[in-house]
Simulated scan of single mutants.
Amino acid sequence: MAPRHPVEGTSSLWQATCDMPSFAPLTQDIETDVCIVGAGLVGLTAALRLVRAGKRVVVLDSQQPGRGNTGRTTAHLASAIDDRFSELARVRGLDAARKAWESHATAIDCIEAIARDEDIACDFERRDGYLWLAPDQDPDILRQELETIHGFGWHGVQAMDEDPVFRRPCLRFPDQAQFHPLKYLAGLCAALKRNGAAIFGDTRVADVAGGDEVVTTTDKGRRVRSKAAIVATCSPICDQFAIHSKQASYTTYAIGLRVPAGVVPPGSIGTPSTPIITSASSRAARPRATS
């Protein structure tokens, strides 16, 4: 079966198991309160929060909702961070590490609340996360990480003699989560439609000009005039140097494998040198590569 939304010959499990809505392109100049560039998880969540606050919202995307990073994620929701809290505290201080944890935890709570309030069936489930040592790593890494985490107040994280998969020393992070990102995104689109927001697909933005009035211009010359704009793309489209010159371009992959139910306990597993990876639930996944 050909992938429904192919990108360079690969497709994610989420893209293969969800029919996303599509939206017509912008064909005329319009005015609104807030213009959002990017119809992924961040853009559509921001749009819903704004329309709930009584704002008029227009969302523009160069493709269609879910065709970017949101549709090709490992779909784990973690308040544990890849670069480790101990490293963040070393560079920026313990308070910055605490704020990073709080912001990630709040984001998970937000997704859970929206899914509940909007009745979005997106397979949201709370899971434990496990951070384990690779064979050649110093056990002191976990000790430093736990001390930092307890130091800024997240006392629910515990040290364990072994994780449930690889049977190695680990830290257990409670209240992590997983969900189906495109089912969630489709629910956001439906909620936005009910609340009067306008979404335009296949509409590439060429420029966002600030000032007393923000003017967002598409590559076809259409303009959206607004009081504010949010650029919610993976990489900003309105700045050529400040961020792009500091970014490293690379691609990562996740592979889904069929495993017998009960062999791998649900949860998130990772090492200090690799991102946390969401393990399979009791529902087997087809092998697919995602970027």
Rank of each mutant, 00 (worst) to 15 (best):
I108D: 06
I108Y: 05
D109M: 14
C110K: 15
I111P: 00
I111G: 07
I114N: 06
I114C: 01
A115H: 01
A115G: 09
R116M: 12
E118F: 01
D119P: 05
C122T: 02
C122F: 02
E125C: 08
R126Q: 15
R126A: 06
R126I: 15
R127C: 03
R127S: 10
L131H: 13
W132K: 08
L133K: 12
D136S: 03
Q137V: 02
Q137Y: 00
Q137G: 06
I141Q: 05
R143P: 07
R143M: 08
R143A: 14
Q144T: 10
E145T: 05
E147K: 15
E147N: 14
T148I: 06
T148D: 12
I149F: 05
H150C: 10
H150V: 10
G153N: 07
H155A: 13
G156Y: 10
G156M: 12
V157M: 13
Q158C: 07
M160Y: 14
M160G: 10
D161Q: 14
D161N: 09
P164G: 11
R167S: 04
P169T: 10
L171P: 05
L171F: 06
F173D: 06
P174D: 14
D175L: 10
Q178C: 15
Q178Y: 12
F179D: 02
H180Y: 04
L182W: 04
L182Y: 00
K183T: 00
Y184W: 00
L185F: 05
G187F: 04
G187H: 04
C189D: 00
C189A: 04
A190P: 03
A190R: 09
A191L: 12
K193N: 14
R194M: 11
I199E: 01
G201M: 07
D202Y: 04
A206F: 00
D207Q: 15
A209F: 07
G210M: 09
G211H: 08
G211P: 05
G211I: 11
D212P: 06
T217P: 05
T218M: 07
D219G: 10
D219I: 11
K220C: 02
G221L: 09
R223M: 10
V224G: 05
R225P: 01
S226L: 12
K227R: 15
K227T: 07
K227Q: 06
A228V: 01
A229L: 05
V231Q: 07
V231C: 13
T233K: 08
S235P: 03
I237H: 00
